[in-house]
Amino acid sequence: MESHKLRIIGGEWRSRRLPIAEVSGLRPTPDRIRETLFNWLQFEVQGAFCLDLFAGSGALGFEALSRGALHCSFVEKHPKAFAQLKANVTSLKTDKAVLYHTDALQFLQTPPPQAFNLIFLDPPFRQALLAPSVAQVCQPAWLKAGAWIYAEHETDLTIDWQNFPLRLHRQSRAGQVVSVLLHYQTEDE
């Protein structure tokens, strides 16, 4: 990856490079992992409503929009990362992105703007943010039937996904990062 640039891999903005804010702990999802994720989701992105919680660079949300998602809500609390997200939305000239400059867990305490088909959860590591985020988004108001949740976490974190109405669909590991794709199970499934 070019230093401090994010490359969109596929879709309308393929090969477009976007600046990334220099923020301590910001880990944009690498190209190879994003490519694998969007191969897993190839039939789920078109027309989807997405939430990129803990957006950071916005890598996952921008990739989804580039591949045909109808809308993406980006939530980021760090002022510098938020400003760069805003600049990148302007640069892409898209009206399909809505930005929220707030803490992710506080955002989850408010009514959702709509139910989502895809939620991307890539919280800062070692801050115990993933499990409470998953618990909150697993409410019917947040997820459409058959929705997908993608999460990244550090390898030394263990989460029992059976505690949630989710089915582990795919899992991979790259270095110190575990990536999981989860399918939301509604009561009638």
Score class of each variant (00 low, 15 high):
residue 50 C to Q: 00
residue 32 R to H: 12
residue 148 W to F: 10
residue 172 S to Y: 01
residue 88 N to A: 13
residue 82 F to W: 05
residue 122 D to F: 03
residue 119 I to D: 06
residue 14 R to C: 15
residue 109 Q to C: 12
residue 31 D to W: 01
residue 56 G to H: 05
residue 127 Q to R: 14
residue 91 S to H: 10
residue 179 S to V: 03
residue 166 L to Q: 04
residue 148 W to I: 11
residue 168 L to P: 07
residue 142 W to H: 04
residue 177 V to H: 12
residue 129 L to D: 05
residue 160 D to A: 12
residue 128 A to K: 14
residue 27 R to A: 00
residue 169 H to F: 15
residue 160 D to T: 09
residue 73 S to C: 06
residue 95 D to P: 06
residue 103 D to R: 03
residue 13 W to Y: 05
residue 180 V to P: 02
residue 18 L to W: 15
residue 180 V to Q: 07
residue 26 L to H: 01
residue 45 V to I: 09
residue 162 Q to P: 08
residue 64 A to E: 02
residue 169 H to L: 14
residue 14 R to H: 15
residue 140 P to W: 00
residue 188 D to L: 14
residue 65 L to G: 08
residue 178 V to E: 15
residue 42 Q to Y: 13
residue 30 P to W: 14
residue 9 I to K: 06
residue 83 A to K: 01
residue 5 K to Y: 15
residue 170 R to Y: 02
residue 62 F to Y: 06
residue 127 Q to W: 06
residue 90 T to M: 13
residue 46 Q to V: 08
residue 172 S to C: 00
residue 98 V to Q: 14
residue 17 R to T: 14
residue 89 V to E: 10
residue 170 R to D: 02
residue 31 D to F: 03
residue 58 G to W: 00
residue 106 Q to P: 09
residue 119 I to H: 02
residue 18 L to R: 05
residue 52 D to A: 08
residue 98 V to C: 10
residue 112 P to C: 03
residue 96 K to W: 04
residue 177 V to Q: 09
residue 6 L to A: 08
residue 12 E to P: 02
residue 66 S to Q: 07
residue 171 Q to H: 10
residue 26 L to Q: 01
residue 149 I to L: 12
residue 9 I to L: 14
residue 160 D to G: 11
residue 85 L to G: 06
residue 122 D to C: 00
residue 77 K to G: 05
residue 126 R to C: 05
residue 130 L to P: 00
residue 158 T to P: 09
residue 48 A to M: 08
residue 116 F to A: 02
residue 25 G to P: 14
residue 79 P to F: 04
residue 117 N to P: 11
residue 39 N to P: 01
residue 69 A to P: 12
residue 97 A to Y: 05
residue 173 R to P: 13
residue 22 E to D: 14
residue 151 A to G: 09
residue 43 F to D: 09
residue 49 F to S: 12
residue 156 D to T: 14
residue 45 V to Y: 00
residue 149 I to V: 15
residue 72 C to D: 03
residue 82 F to R: 04
residue 95 D to C: 11
residue 145 A to W: 01
residue 110 T to R: 15
residue 178 V to W: 15
residue 184 Y to V: 02
residue 9 I to C: 14
residue 64 A to I: 00
residue 176 Q to V: 06
residue 45 V to T: 05
residue 136 Q to F: 11
residue 36 T to Y: 01
residue 10 G to E: 10
residue 91 S to W: 13
residue 71 H to N: 13
residue 129 L to A: 05
residue 109 Q to F: 01
residue 63 E to W: 01
residue 187 E to T: 10
residue 158 T to C: 13
residue 145 A to V: 07
residue 30 P to Y: 12
residue 27 R to P: 02
residue 122 D to W: 02
residue 164 F to N: 10
residue 138 C to H: 07
residue 130 L to I: 13
residue 33 I to C: 11
residue 179 S to D: 06
residue 148 W to V: 06
residue 94 T to L: 10
residue 189 E to D: 15
residue 37 L to Y: 07
residue 182 L to E: 08
residue 119 I to A: 06
residue 19 P to C: 02
residue 109 Q to E: 10
residue 43 F to L: 11
residue 19 P to N: 07
residue 5 K to N: 13
residue 99 L to F: 08
residue 79 P to S: 03
residue 83 A to D: 01
residue 123 P to D: 06
residue 155 T to F: 10
residue 127 Q to G: 03
residue 150 Y to V: 01
residue 153 H to Y: 11
residue 9 I to G: 12
residue 66 S to N: 02
residue 39 N to D: 12
residue 88 N to L: 08
residue 101 H to D: 08
residue 21 A to H: 02
residue 9 I to F: 07
residue 138 C to R: 10
